[in-house]
């Protein structure tokens, strides 16, 4: 599968936030993972939102050429970690993971969550969990459903160094062949990825 973002331009209040951004991702390539770099306010989140299809660009296009493995003609399925956690606060960590996809069983959600979270936290309403724990639930929620592309906006925010390494390992071991586009101001401990600097 080939995903091409061509000349993506976004203007807010007369100011050009994104100016003709180009990015091509070949899922068969070894360098399919991309790290978005740039100072805060430069438009990383906006670009990720455009890539996820939840915001329109003012000009430019997104072209997806599906390979046989991806099942030609389908819309791009995305697993996303938003800038905020966007969890259903009254529901448990397990419910937050299973609710997005009927194919994810409770057993599977528990199994995956246990890789990054303590067992006693799994059935508590997420509003009772710490910010770092909530972030990990949001990451597992993005990772588990079947998807063609993973988009993560500052996924490591609020994690202590030890948990951070554990989470990075979890993401890289479980993402499979899916390309990952990540915006992160903190690159320490991240595996080598293709970099796209927004200026």
């Amino acid at each position: 599968m080939l995903i091409q973002f061509r000349d993506i331009t976004k203007i807010y209040d007369g100011k050009k936030i994104l100016n003709r951004v180009n990015l091509s991702i070949d899922t068969a390539s070894d360098s399919k993972d991309v790290l978005l770099k740039g100072p805060s306010g430069i438009g990383k989140t906006t670009l990720l939102r455009i890539m996820a299809g939840i915001e329109n660009s003012d000009s430019g296009s997104i072209e997806i050429t599906m390979g046989e493995a991806a099942g030609g003609g389908k819309k791009l399925r995305i697993g996303m970690v938003f800038q905020e956690n966007r969890l259903l606060e009254q529901f448990s960590a397990v419910e937050n993971v299973t609710c997005v996809d009927s194919m994810i069983s409770r057993t599977r959600a528990v199994e995956e969550l246990k890789k990054v979270l303590e067992e006693e936290a799994l059935d508590k309403p997420v509003r009772e969990l710490s910010g770092g724990m909530q972030r990990r639930v949001a990451i597992v929620r993005a990772m588990l459903p079947a998807s063609d592309l993973l988009i993560m906006d500052e996924p490591l925010t609020g994690l202590d160094p030890e948990t951070r390494d554990r989470v990075i390992r979890y993401i890289m071991e479980n993402k499979g062949r899916r390309p990952l586009i990540m915006a992160s101001h903190d690159t320490e401990g991240l595996p080598r990825m293709r970099e796209l600097a927004l200026v």
Partner: peptide, 21 residues
């Protein structure tokens, strides 16, 4: 609206959106 956006990205079916959001 942020939860609805999340549901849109994950393509949650309407029945689940009703129940959870």
């Amino acid at each position: 609206p942020k939860l609805l956006e999340m549901a849109e990205v994950f393509r949650m079916p309407m029945r689940r959106k009703l129940l959870y959001i």
